[in-house]
Amino acid sequence: MTLSTMLSAMGEGMLRSCAIFFLTILFSMPLGMVIMFLRRSRLKLVSGITKIYIAIMRGTPLMLQLLMWYFGPYYLFGMSIRGYRFPAIIIGFSMNYAAYFAEIYRGGMETIPQGQYEAAEVLGYSKTQTFFKIILPQVIKAILPSVTNEIITLVKDTSLAFTLAYNEMFSLAKQIAASQTSFTPFIIAGVFYFIANYAVAFAMERIEKALDYYK
């Protein structure tokens, strides 16, 4: 097998890895915001349940969570899981990463001094205006380094989709490596993850620089 056939065989897997990556970002980042608000709720019951949720998401392996999301509906409700593989992966990743993002957002919220809320209140801003105009922009700036870390971890974690026998790039690399008794697919995989993360780090650094105009 030549290098170019290997690459083209793995190409589709790369697209699948990218799909997992982008969809997880798309769902988990806003969902994390919702979870953060629930976690900060003044209602003890709401914040308590959210706390347990976060503890489970962070305290158990993502691999196990993926198996639960995929096979759970079948064992619990006898639901047919045909065609459910990809949605299960996206749900599993999104629910897991949302928990991490929620905690990052919460940390960011805590860096905002009480005086910012008070100034906004005295100036007559509504609660919504205060959050979106005054608080959120400062939170985003504060959490960028942690978010970068999390996104880089996600790039590498996409390989965990192999647990559900989903042919993302790393699964294909293993298959080709085994059938061709070659180490090259692993090197290709490594280069792929490295380039993807380099791009992530580069983009995030640009955003950080763009927000450097204030302290």
Partner: peptide
């Protein structure tokens, strides 16, 4: 502690509430 909005310029700190609140 002044409590100016650090991400807004001086001018925007002053004009934002009159424009968007009032």
């Amino acid at each position: 502690q002044f409590n100016l909005f650090p991400h807004y310029s001086v001018l925007k700190n002053i004009t934002d509430a009159p424009i968007h609140v009032q």
